Amino acid sequence: MSSARDRFRQVPPPPGGGKSAHAYTRFIPREELSSFAAWNPGSLGGEAEAAAAAAAAEPQKSPEELQAEALRSARQGGYHDGYRDGLAALESFKQSFAQQATAQMGALMQSYAAQMDELQQQMAGALADAAVSLARQVVRGELQANAQQVAAVAQEAIEALLLSARHVTLRVHPDDQPLVAQGAAEILEARGARLVADAALTRGGCLVESDIGIIDASIESRWRRAAAALGSEAAWNGEEPTP
């Protein structure tokens, strides 16, 4: 009985062929092999030992090289940390800037609104002053052209007085006295009112006194009511109102 080594020997087949010819294994020359690698018993196990042996076979780095590698690693880490911190700082700055811009814009809009309100008030005041000045000129011209209207004013003032009033006195400017005496004679007689000239009154107005009160129908009083309707406090004589 042949051994395993004899069975696997690569030898030419015996002459004559026979069944043993099927067990022939041909020897393959090196030139016919496209690629091959030497088998190493260590490839079936012991990778850690092989790696350790390979590492031991590598040349050892000098302290300068190790220091350089450590420096490069530190720089790379510093770069990444700095980049991350820079992005965080940029985002924080953007948020802070947006908040400040929003606050400044809000303050600007409030200031603009306040200035617009003030401008509108000034324009309204100027318009009211112009209207009051024009109205004053019209009233003065009307008083000079139709002085007899003071009689109608006096009659309305007396009619506004309660019928129960006693001791009625009608005061008018001396220049208006004859006009009122003629134009309001009936009402004066019906109410038993006295007509008194008073130089302290402005032409065109009158003052009614009685035991129950006073009715002020002077030019100044009527003008204040008319000017107030226009949003103005301008006095009849054109002077600023006394605070």
Rank of each mutant, 00 (worst) to 15 (best):
A151Y: 13
R191L: 02
P174N: 06
G192R: 11
E156A: 15
H167C: 01
V168F: 00
E189C: 05
Q177K: 10
A157F: 08
R194L: 14
E159C: 07
L201V: 07
A184S: 05
D198K: 05
R194P: 00
A184V: 04
V180Y: 06
A154T: 03
E189T: 12
L170H: 06
Q155I: 01
H167S: 12
A184P: 04
P174A: 01
L162R: 13
A152D: 15
Q149F: 10
G183W: 11
P178M: 08
V153P: 02
P174L: 07
Q177E: 08
A160S: 14
E186C: 00
V168M: 12
L161W: 01
A184I: 06
L163M: 11
L201E: 09
D176G: 08
A190T: 13
A197P: 15
V180D: 07
A152V: 08
D176N: 09
A197M: 09
A200W: 02
A157K: 07
I187S: 07
A157L: 12
D175L: 13
A185I: 01
A145E: 04
V150R: 03
D198N: 07
A145H: 11
V172E: 07
A181H: 00
L170Y: 09
L162S: 14
R194G: 14
A181R: 11
H167V: 05
N146K: 10
